[in-house]
Design a protein around this nucleic acid. Structure first.
Lengths: 198, 198
DNA sequence: ATAGAAACATACGGGACGTATGTCAATTTA
DNA sequence: TAAATTGACATACGTCCCGTATGTTTCTAT
């Protein structure tokens, strides 16, 4: 044994740093998270951090990349489970709202991320979950379910609606009750995209 | 002349600080804005700042309060100019999207504000423009135009959609073209709230 | 075997926030 | 009217934290 491959060890330290950073960013917020503290919790020092990620923003990008990938997996799962493509689209939206309830996603992806790195659409990852939604909507347009329109525009507004719903729910005294109201409103809004039967 | 009233002088310095802070926060972002710099530009020092606003976050709250008030005025204007209440509601949304194109509002209200102070719904101002939208929707429900639902939920999702539209437009290479697409999508979504005629 | 580079640790400087202290003018009180 | 007190701000200080510059060790390549 012993002597793991060099690349593997690097990957380990990167993973440890990302994990520690994700925890610190989620609990304390990006600005209040100390590089000294989170590297120490990973059993390392700031040297490792600046070597691997360049700066604090680079570390945040890495964390966001990780979360983004997880979100896409869960959204695709929700969509594939539905019977029709339209129902899958709705399920995707509800799944998004549910995910944004988690503190990690809430704080890092929805609050600090855009404030520190700018508009999510410009992120390297291209915000994979936005792409997923855009593709779904485009398919719905192609099959005639949704009225012809710019798919990305629809995806962005739908995403925004779901995002705000999440923030609302998370801050509510009774998240469960608010969740129900939000989902209802979300479904109504989505109906506006449907092709009007004539 | 000379010797203005004491309270009036205080109000002047507060206004100067808020104005300088608004400029600094909008251009550099909240985190990168130096208290020394912005107070100096107002012809004062950090002493005045901490005396009047407590801390940096207090100053941000004051700036947000000012912008919030301006936004509400403009939204009400857009709404009152329309012929029907429903058209007024749509105009309100479009006005919101247009406002969020301005760097001040974009950066301070939509990016840094929520990241630093937390969810906007918990702000002291209660985000006056959200209240305005809620009231409009409630009126539309009462008059039978919009289907019965939770007015606040609808307002929040609509706001979120408009917000994301603004962020998208602001980051686009051709804001004008994207603006058109976003408004189209916004109108379609809003239609989903309408009472289905039977 | 040696040279070089990668991976990380350690040391240093600068900037910014918040607080504690000082000063001056205005208002109140005797 | 003179003294005292309070408010409004300036100045000085300590502390934290980021980013960089400089080691040190281990692995790889020739």
């Amino acid at each position: 044994m012993a002597a793991k491959r060099r690349a593997q060890m690097v990957e380990e330290t990167r993973a440890k740093l990302v994990q520690a950073a994700r925890k610190a960013f989620a609990t304390k917020g990006y600005a209040a998270a100390s590089m000294d503290d989170l590297t120490a919790e990973a059993g390392l020092t700031r040297g490792a951090l600046y070597h691997n990620f360049g700066d604090k923003k680079g570390l945040l990008q890495a964390v966001i990349g990780q979360i983004d990938a997880e979100m896409v997996v869960r959204m695709r799962a929700a969509q594939n489970q539905a019977e029709t493509r339209w129902l899958g689209f709705l399920a995707e939206g509800v799944a998004y709202i549910e995910m944004a309830l988690e503190p990690d996603i809430q704080r890092i992806m929805l609050l600090d991320g855009p404030a520190v790195l700018g508009d999510p659409s410009l992120w390297p990852n291209q915000t994979a979950c936005l792409r997923a939604t855009t593709q779904t909507i485009q398919a719905l347009i192609d099959e005639g379910t949704v009225r012809p329109m710019d798919a990305e525009a629809a995806a962005r507004l739908i995403n925004g609606a779901a995002l705000n719903a999440s923030l609302w729910i998370a801050a509510a005294d009774d998240p469960h009750a608010v969740f129900a109201k939000a989902v209802e409103a979300f479904r109504y809004l989505a109906v506006g995209l449907l092709q009007t039967e004539r």
